[in-house]
Simulated assay, not measured.
Amino acid sequence: MFLLFMQSSLKLLLIFVLPCFVAECAYKIWWYASGASQIPFLGNVVLSDTVACILELCSWLYRTIVIFLVCVLFHLICHLQILRLQDFARVFQVESDVGSVLSEHLRIRRHLRIISHRYRGFVLCSLILITGSQFASLLITTQAHAVVDIYRAGELALCSITLVTGLLIILRSATKITHKAQAVTSLAAKWHICATLDTVDAIEAETPRFDSGQVFPVVGTDGESDGDGAGDEEDELDNSKLIPAYAHNTISFQKRQALVTYFENNRAGITVYGFTLDRSTLHSIFGVEFALVLWLLGKTVGIS
């Protein structure tokens, strides 16, 4: 597990840090080569610019790795919980009792609550600070008497790309795990209705019209059900496949209904001080920030 964690961390860091570092190196080398620095503090202009460029790149790389390391750590923690949710979804494919399903879901909710409490300050501060820095950069570049050249614009662009990329990693990870956790409700409802239909049909029909492992399978010309041709994005939590009806043998209708009601009223996910980070929350954040951007542009360059 530790090896997998280190490999995933290094992979994500290389994916996000390496392109930014290459762009920063190219920009800084061009910036010093074009004569932006005129102070030969080592007695030689070329040597001074080379040392200053290397030191500045090392400083930028250290700050960027620190930012991305925390973001990648949060992403990996969320991904591990997603894997656990996918394992949890398999309990609906086999014979299992309501008590074991409920206890496992309570453990998952507890872990998600712990993650939310430990990272809510970081997520909120990242959102506020990165949003504030981007608005400050926008104000600097669009005010009436601003001096904007390629040097300042390039520096602001690279810093903005780094910060926004880190914020997107955090928000995407939190939204994805919230979506997967809430998909358990629809999975439980599908499991409940498959078992109910199987029970009703077994009572009414003298001979079963289906095999005991599948409820109302729709078979195509290739001998596979419609769900087998679904896209690769579907998994155990979110798919269009029917569920084998094992539940009617051991679990009564009332117990299944109570379990579905519990899932409907106890949705899990990543929260920040009571606000669930799901797609609706992201849409609200985007709407607020887009309105602020238009307001700021209206005050500076007259866009309305």
Rank of each mutant, 00 (worst) to 15 (best):
D235C: 05
D222T: 03
I243W: 06
S225I: 12
D211Q: 06
E224S: 10
G213M: 04
P244T: 06
E236W: 05
V218Q: 12
E264P: 00
A247I: 03
Y246A: 00
T207C: 04
N249E: 14
Q214E: 11
G227L: 04
S240H: 10
P217H: 00
N249L: 12
A258S: 14
Y246I: 00
S212R: 12
K255P: 03
A247S: 09
A230L: 10
D232Y: 06
Q214I: 05
V260K: 03
G213Y: 08
K255A: 15
S225P: 13
P208W: 00
P244N: 05
L259M: 13
E264I: 12
T221E: 14
I251T: 15
A205R: 15
E264N: 07
D222S: 11
F263P: 03
A230C: 15
A247Q: 09
Q257N: 11
D228L: 02
S240I: 08
A205V: 01
L259H: 11
Q214N: 11
A230V: 01
G223C: 02
Q254R: 13
S252A: 05
G213V: 02
V219N: 05
I251N: 05
L259C: 07
R209Y: 03
A245E: 03
H248Y: 13
I243P: 00
T261I: 01
Y246T: 04
Y262H: 13
D226P: 00
A258K: 09
P217C: 00
G227N: 02
Q254I: 14
S252R: 05
F253Q: 04
V218S: 12
V260G: 01
Q257W: 12
L259F: 15
F216P: 04
A205K: 14
Y262F: 15
F216V: 07
G213H: 09
T221G: 12
E206A: 11
A247W: 09
F210C: 06
P208M: 03
E204F: 07
R209S: 11
T221D: 14
V260R: 02
D211L: 04
L242I: 08
D211M: 02
F216L: 12
G213I: 02
D226M: 07
P217M: 01
L237R: 07
G231A: 15
K241E: 08
I243N: 00
V260Q: 02
V215R: 14
V219E: 10
Y262I: 03
